[in-house]
């Protein structure tokens, strides 16, 4: 039982990180219909800021907001430079653009920073663990769970109470009508990218605090997981993205924890098999976006 609880804590921590990643994709997708595969590179940018702050001797407490600021700013810049010119093009064009942005950034990191992974100095407190009621919980797991909760609450409040948040929800529901109501497209889309950048930054800090290094290609795996989680939850639905992220985290951890040793090698295919099963039963994802209702697949 204790082992089960312990693994559940692990699943919450991993699922939370996936949820933040998937949310980052979903926020942009819900408004623009774009899956931004360069989302992972926003994480890499935040990671490099942490690394340079460490080298410059800036305390982690200040490095974190700087990293968040950098990824948010980079996301807005990305929208302005790469995605605005192709905004009205087909989904395929935007998708290819996002791949191009990801690749260009990777090559820039490789050429301007280093092809090798760079160590990131982390506060020792993050590597420790605390015991709560017989459960040993790593501090970085706890931080992951707490930051996920904070981000989710923040996002929920922002979307339901703030003017820009409400505008974004309206745009997600029906962009054309929202624009007819006087909502400025540029503001809403830039806002969506800013939020997605902020989410990427938070996820990057959690991700980097586990691996203790950054390299130019580190964004690939997380964006892939985020993509799976977003599809699982229902593309374009924010609550769905969170549900999908947690479900993916739970699937991965429980399989790694409780699959018999002989089957462990097949953990990933089994995990993705479960995802496919879920999608067979709920083709539009766990919590489909409202806008999808009309177009049943």
């Amino acid at each position: 039982m204790e082992l089960f609880l312990q693994q559940t804590v692990n699943a919450f921590a991993l699922g939370g990180t996936y949820a933040l990643l998937a949310l980052g994709l979903a926020v942009v997708f819900s408004i623009m219909g774009l899956i931004n595969f360069a989302h992972g590179e926003l994480m890499t940018i935040a990671g490099y800021v942490l690394m340079y702050c460490g080298l410059a001797g800036i305390s982690f407490v200040f490095a974190v907001p700087l990293a968040l600021l950098a990824s948010t700013f980079a996301a807005v810049l990305m929208e302005r430079i790469a995605f605005r010119p192709v905004r009205n093009s087909s989904g395929a064009t935007m998708l290819v653009t996002s791949f191009a942005v990801a690749m260009i950034l990777q090559v820039l990191f490789q050429n301007l920073i280093s092809v090798r992974s760079q160590p990131v100095l982390l506060p020792e407190a993050l590597s420790g663990s605390i015991t709560i009621g017989g459960l040993v919980i790593g501090v970085n797991k706890l931080v992951a769970i707490i930051s996920t909760v904070i981000m989710l609450i923040f996002l929920d409040r922002f979307l339901s109470k703030q003017k820009y948040g409400i505008a974004m929800r309206a745009a997600a529901e029906d962009f054309a009508v929202a624009r007819l109501m006087g909502i400025r497209a540029n503001t809403v889309i830039a806002g969506a990218f800013a939020i997605s950048g902020l989410l990427a930054g938070v996820a990057a800090i959690l991700w980097v605090s586990q691996r203790a290094s950054v390299d130019p290609l580190m964004g690939f795996t997380p964006v892939l997981k985020a993509f799976i989680a977003a599809i699982l939850g229902g593309l374009g639905s924010l609550r769905g993205a969170v549900a999908g992220g947690f479900l993916l985290g739970f699937i991965e951890i429980y399989l790694a924890a409780f699959l018999p040793p002989a089957l462990q090698e097949f953990r990933d295919p089994i995990g993705l098999g479960i995802v496919v099963l879920v999608l067979l039963m709920r083709p539009n994802g766990l919590l489909p976006a409202a806008s999808l209702k009309a177009e049943k697949v």
């Binding site: 790593g138 795996t221 997380p222 991965e252 924890a257 953990r267």
Partner: peptide, 17 residues
């Protein structure tokens, strides 16, 4: 004995075991 996947980010399940 435990196996992992190349590029695996999270080892908490193995560590807990």
């Amino acid at each position: 004995r435990d196996t992992y996947t190349l590029g695996q980010q999270d080892f908490s399940a193995i560590a807990t075991r």
